[in-house]
Design a protein around this nucleic acid. Structure first.
Lengths: 226, 226
DNA sequence: CTAAATTTCTGAACGCGTTCAAGTAATTGT
DNA sequence: ACAATTACTTGAACGCGTTCAGAAATTTAG
């Protein structure tokens, strides 16, 4: 996944640097690991790392990209096993937890530059649009024949909303220090229950005015980012 | 607000450093401003800044503390002018926008270390508990005789939830680059409308089960932080 | 008033992420 | 085969936030 890959040799070097970095991140932690250390572990000079990756964060980004590709088949598999909006939502998010389980700190390093769409490494940035769109498509997929009647006006926006919801859960997960992140486990169950309930409720005729306001809210938030 | 203030002279120096920092932050931006520059502007050596403030971020924290004190009377005034949950919520949050209007970037610098309760400078950290509690108390105040019937089980948790809601809005505001942050203006209106509607709806007998789940969710989130 | 203790301040130094001018290896065109 | 071009690699250097051993100023004690 390195940005430079003209030559097979170069691609190999890029991979070596990425893997060296991930090894050290997991071994020593993200902040403790230095670019000099990464280069040394990969058997190159310090500057070489910057020939392949624009920054230390960019290495994490490369890891994130790679992870998302790797997760696709796992998601397909997980979704095949369950039905219903609630269970499928849970399954989709759980795949991500499982995949990143041993890399929570690395993901945290990515997420701490956080929600600023100006920051290139943010999940909301222009640079991560492609990967985000792939992710959002899964929420679209989940909503088809999920057994829940979804208002026509809500349907086109719901995938974005659910993706945002997912980011919130993931954010909670990366900072959750309870043993085996069991708090996130409880959170996921309850949050998904709440969200699906809200969707069901939003379909009630009585709720039309509130729904319209909420939709307008979504429109404003989506304004130029997301 | 400097941490060191044994002597009047020391307090004065601490203030001078804080003000020098704020001047430069506003003039040159947060990242561009260096600790060396701050010290120079304050007429002291580089190290002196660290005698008074543990870090560059700690200076921002000092600014934040001072701001919160300064805002108290403004909040009282603003709330005296309006009635009703919706209008009061809006007014409370708007006071903060007005106060931080010329310091958005500084606040952004504080908020980017973000929601990690481990980070001392996070709005969710143990170190900021005092200031947070004062802030949450205002939401408590707003709920008294607001004209909206609030379920008994919800009432004790609502101030925390609304504070969290406020943080979300503020977060949107600091990264909102639309002219004069007009997008946040729209967001605030719609979001407050949505939230008050949800509170009203949650009082419906029909909603009892959902409300219970949501409350359980709040309990889990509050687990050991917030 | 002086000596000890404490508070306040200094500026060089450290480690980090990052940059860059310069080198070496590989590929291409002829 | 051999330049010329391009791809890759180097390690010293820069600027930053931060630390620290110790100097200067101030307060306290006798």
């Amino acid at each position: 996944m390195p940005p430079v890959k003209i030559t097979p040799k170069a691609e190999e070097t890029g991979f070596r640097i990425l893997n060296a970095a991930l090894t050290l991140f997991r071994q020593e932690g993200f902040d403790t690991t230095t670019m000099r250390g990464i280069a040394q572990q990969a058997g190159v000079a310090t500057g070489a790392a910057y020939y392949y990756y624009d920054s230390k964060d960019a290495i994490v980004m490369a890891f994130y990209r790679r992870s998302c590709v790797e997760m696709q088949p796992q998601i397909t598999e997980a979704l095949a096993e369950v039905t219903g909006l609630e269970k499928r939502l849970q399954a989709l998010i759980r795949v991500k937890f499982e995949h990143f389980a041993r890399n929570r700190e690395i993901l945290r390093a990515l997420l701490r530059n956080g929600a600023d769409p100006k920051h290139p490494l943010s999940p909301f940035s222009e640079q991560t649009k492609e990967i985000r769109d792939i992710d959002i498509a899964w929420f679209d997929r989940i909503l088809i024949d999920c057994g829940v009647r979804i208002p026509k006006d809500l349907l086109p926006h719901l995938p974005d909303v659910l993706w945002f919801f997912q980011m919130g859960v993931i954010f909670f997960w990366v900072i959750d220090e309870s043993p085996n992140q069991e708090r996130t486990g409880q959170l996921l169950d309850l949050a998904v229950k709440s969200v699906t309930s809200l969707i069901r409720i939003s379909a009630l005729p009585l709720m039309r005015p509130v729904r319209k306001v909420a939709l307008e809210l979504v429109r404003v938030v989506k304004g130029d980012n997301l």
